[in-house]
Structures are given as C-alpha cells and as structure tokens.
Design a protein around this nucleic acid. Sequence first.
DNA 1: TTGTGTTTTACGACCTCC
DNA 2: GGAGGTCGTAAAACACAA
Length: 293
Amino acid sequence: MDRARLIFDPSSSRCRHEQRMLLLGGGGGGSPVFGGARSALAAAEGANKRRPFFTSPEELLEEEYYYDEQQPDKKRRLSPEQVRLLERSFEAENKLEPERKSELALKLGMQPRQVAVWFQNRRARWKTKQLEHDFDSLKSSYGSLLSDHDSLLKENDRLRSQVISLTEKLQSRTAASAAAAGIAGTKSDVQAAASVADPATLVVQTKAEDRLSAGSGGSAVVDGEAANQLVDSSEVSYREGCHCMGPVDGGRVQSEEDDGSDEGCNYYSDGIFAAEHHHQDEVDAQLDWWVWS
DNA sequence: TTGTGTTTTACGACCTCC
DNA sequence: GGAGGTCGTAAAACACAA
C-alpha cells in the first residue's frame, strides 16, 4: 500500500493518476518523466502540490533537463544496453557506493537515483531467487535424508532379527548342555553352562578372560564373588553403555524414554553391535568349549 | 482484441549503522 | 541525524492464451 499516495488521493481515478504523475515526477510509479502532463496539471492543480522527493532547486532543474529529453508521459524500461551494464556491475558488487553510483549514472545517462533504485530492485530479485534455490536444495537434502533413514530402519530390523535368532540358538545349546551336565557333570558345570544363557554374561566373561590372559592388573585368580561383581557391573555397563538403551525385551530394546515411536534411539546402538560382532567368534568358541568339553 | 498474469521501475515507510 | 538498506506496494510495460 502506498501510503503517501492515499494522502493525495483525489476523487476520480484519472485525476489520481495524473496527480501522481505530477507529484512523483512521471508516468506511473514516479518514473523519470517530466512532460506535458506535468506542465498542464501544474497550472490546473496549483503550486501547493510539490514533489516530495526532490527538494533542491538545482536537482529539480537538473532533473527537468534530463526528463525533457525523455518521452513525457510513459514509464519506460531501461534499454538492453543499460540493463546489461547494470547487470555486469551488479555481478561485480551488489552494493552501490556513491562513487560508483555517480559513475554508472553518468555512463548510462541515468539519474543516480535511478541507478540506486535499480540496484535495490535487483537485490530484491536476487534474494527471491536465492530463497527459491535454498528451498529447493533443502527439499532435495530432506529427500535423501529420508531415504537414508528408511534404509537404516531396514538394516536395523535385519540386525534385530539376527540377534533374536542367535539368542534362540544360544538358548537351545544351553538346554542341551544343562541336560548333559545333569547326567554326568558337576554342579559347577551346570552353573557355568547356565550362565551362558545370558549373552551379556558371555561378553563379560570374555572380557574377564582377556584381562586374565593379558595379566593386566588384578589377581590371576578370580574368586566367585569377584566374578559375580564383574558380571553385575559389566551387565550394568552393557545395558547402560548406550545412553538410549533400556532392558532387552523380546529382541526389542526399550529405552526409558521410549514412547513407542520410531523417533529417537530405541534400538541397539552401533556400539553394542560392534562389540557383539567383535566378540562373536570368541563367544562361539567359548560356547563350544563349555557345552562340548 | 482483450483479459490476465508476470516483470520492471519507482516510491514511501521503516530500520540500521556510523 | 543523515545515508543507505529492506520491505511492501503501485502502476506501466510486457507476454501470452483465448
């Protein structure tokens, strides 16, 4: 809304248009035209209506001289050559220092004000284009993120079902070894075999063995209580290792903050899977040793 | 030719910086 | 406070389909 124009809005639309040409210096939008309409209406409207923008008499004279050379009553576009030069200048620097403005105006036969306005409008157009471009690139990166997310979900499902099948395998081997121990084994054999039921325990035991074989700190003999503590604390760390992991429930790992949605980290973390893969062979070897030795 | 949508030129109001 | 910026807008110029 052009507020200033409302102030001077006359009764008829024609008068409004012509008065606008008079007040703002041209045929529509204050374009650089000072022509017949101006002089004719200046007499009709009186001298009390002054152009608000150009105040100095020198400027007015200069402008009138310039505009006398233009067609009087039309808002005219810049010539292709003018636009070309302006574009080139804009590419070099999209802000306009006063020196450059005067220089360009002189070179192009335009008013400095016109050059400034052209740059303002050009910046606005550039900004609009930039916004469109940014929107497009954000949209495409959102698309690729979405497909990444989908493939990660699929991979997650695959790994989860792998965990479930391995757990089942482990449990069946445990049952077999328990049965064998009930017939010929000792109580400690049964306990050892039973402890295999929990994969976390296996991981911990593997770690304990690593420590023992490496001789890194502690006694070479681990008594029962110490072993239990090791198992307990390690189980805690196993389950809390991933900050977003909760207790295992039927293959699904539930976070304390799990709201049932797929948002956030509700599944095994990469770290857990990495640890499991790392120890998988050792676990299998131990399993074989406990069950079949 | 005419109606309609888009682009270009220009402005006033307001904001920020020096 | 002035200069120069952005923002929102008007209106002419232009493009194009019906």
